[in-house]
């Protein structure tokens, strides 16, 4: 029994923990509070741009950045570094386009954020 625990149960348990850490990205990117709901803020910004509410869009694109900062800490062990950089770059570009009130650029970047988000942790 002791041998079974030492040579079977413990190694399998350790491997299971490793797999959980490596595959946790898709689960951990989901929001657990209001502050870390990246996609909610992205949709909000998109709607506000459609309605021409640029000051609200500016506030909420900052919320996207803050939300992603929270999520990033959770998923950094299970996703590619480049995917995180791509997300950050898209968010920063979107902030620029919203500040410049550029509808086309902002909408394109928001779609890019959604696309990168979909692939994050998969």
């Amino acid at each position: 029994m002791k041998e079974f625990i030492l040579y079977k149960v413990i190694p399998l348990f350790i491997l299971a923990i490793f797999i959980c850490v490596m595959k946790s990205g898709e689960y951990l990117k989901q929001s657990f509070t209001e502050e870390d709901d990246v996609m909610y803020y992205v949709e909000l910004v998109s709607t506000e741009i459609d309605n021409g509410h640029w000051s609200e869009a500016k506030t909420n694109i900052s919320n996207v950045k803050d939300a992603f900062e929270i999520v990033k800490k959770r998923i950094q062990f299970s996703v590619e570094r480049n995917e995180l950089y791509e997300m950050e770059s898209s968010i920063n570009r979107a902030i620029g386009f919203v500040s410049a009130r550029d509808v086309g650029g902002a909408k394109a970047e928001l779609e890019e954020i959604k696309f990168t988000w979909e692939g994050l942790g998969k």
């Binding site: 490793f18 797999i19 850490v21 490596m22 595959k23 062990f77 299970s78 996703v79 590619e80 570094r81 480049n82």
Partner: peptide, 8 residues
């Protein structure tokens, strides 16, 4: 730069 999972 690569995901840990494929390497594993």
């Amino acid at each position: 730069a690569t995901d840990a999972w494929p390497n594993w």
